[in-house]
Simulated scan of single mutants.
Amino acid sequence: MATFLGTYENRLDSKGRISVPALFRAQLPEPHNQTVILFPSYRAAAIEGCAMDFIEQLGESISEIDLFSDDQDDLATSLFSDSQPLGMDKEGRIVLPAELMAHAGITDRGCFVGKGPLFQIWQPDALAAHKAEARQRARTKGLTLPIRPRRDGGA
C-alpha cells in the first residue's frame, strides 16, 4: 500500500495540468502506477487522492455496512459518485477536473500533502491555515499516538 509523505507546491499550466510529485508517483503500485483517484473531501475544501488499491479497500469497508442502509448509501455516494481515476502523462502530470478545482479553491497553484495512504491537494493559503489549525487542535487536546507492533512482525 502506498504511503504518501511531505508537502509539495506545484503550478498548474495553461491547460489545467499539474505535476504529481515524483515521490508520490513512486508510491503508486502496479498495475495502476500511472493512475491516481481524486475526489472532493467532505471534511475540507481540498481534493482527496489515493491509489487504486486504497479506493478498493475503502469499497470493501463500505460493503460491510448494510447494503441498503442510509449510512452505506451516504458513504458510498459521498466517496464514489465524484471519484475520478486520472491517468498521468509521461511527465507525471494530471489534468485537475474543474469541479474539483472549484471545490478546493485552486486556481494557479496546488499543494500536495501526504497523509499516509491518502494525499490531499489544497489551495496554498488554505493549506497553511489548515496546518496551523490542525497543529493547534492536536496540542490543545494533547493528542498522542501509541506505537503499535508492525503487522509483518518487524520492529
Rank of each mutant, 00 (worst) to 15 (best):
E9R: 15
D125C: 00
Q57I: 05
I65D: 08
S19I: 12
Y42N: 15
I18Q: 04
R135L: 13
Y42S: 12
L100F: 04
V113I: 13
K90Q: 09
A155V: 12
I147S: 15
D53M: 06
D108N: 12
G110N: 03
A22C: 07
E133S: 12
D53S: 15
L67E: 10
L12A: 02
E60V: 06
P21V: 04
S69P: 08
F24C: 06
F68Y: 12
L79I: 15
Y42A: 11
W122N: 11
I18T: 06
I121A: 03
H103M: 06
M101P: 00
P31W: 09
D70S: 15
I18E: 02
C111V: 15
A45G: 14
R17E: 04
D13Y: 06
K131F: 09
L145A: 14
A126I: 00
G105M: 10
P31K: 08
M52W: 12
G59P: 09
G105R: 10
G110W: 02
Q72G: 07
G110V: 01
I94W: 06
D125K: 11
R43D: 11
A104H: 03
P124D: 10
R43P: 01
V95N: 06
M52T: 12
F54I: 15
A128K: 12
H130P: 00
F39M: 02
D53T: 14
I94H: 04
A155P: 04
L5V: 15
A51L: 05
A76Q: 05
D71N: 13
Q120T: 15
C50Q: 10
P149N: 10
T140K: 10
I18N: 07
I94L: 01
E64T: 14
F54H: 15
I47L: 01
I47Q: 01
S78W: 07
T107R: 14
Y8I: 06
A128F: 01
I55P: 06
H103Q: 03
T140V: 13
E99N: 14
A129S: 00
L38I: 09
A26P: 04
D13R: 08
M52I: 11
A102E: 14
A102L: 15
P146A: 11
P149K: 08
S61F: 02
A132V: 07
G59L: 08
L118C: 02
S63C: 05
D73V: 03
G114F: 01
V95C: 08
S83W: 00
Q34F: 07
P124V: 08
F68P: 04
G142H: 08
N10R: 15
D71T: 13
G92L: 01
D82M: 08
F4M: 05
N10L: 10
D82H: 07
G49C: 10
P40K: 00
S69K: 10
R25A: 13
F24M: 11
I65F: 01
L5P: 00
S69L: 07
S78K: 11
T3S: 13
Q72Y: 04
L38K: 05
Q34D: 13
R17P: 07
S69T: 07
D89M: 11
I94Q: 08
K131I: 13
Q123K: 11
G49A: 06
R135I: 00
V95R: 06
G87W: 03
V20F: 09
R139E: 09
F119L: 04
S81T: 15
A129C: 03
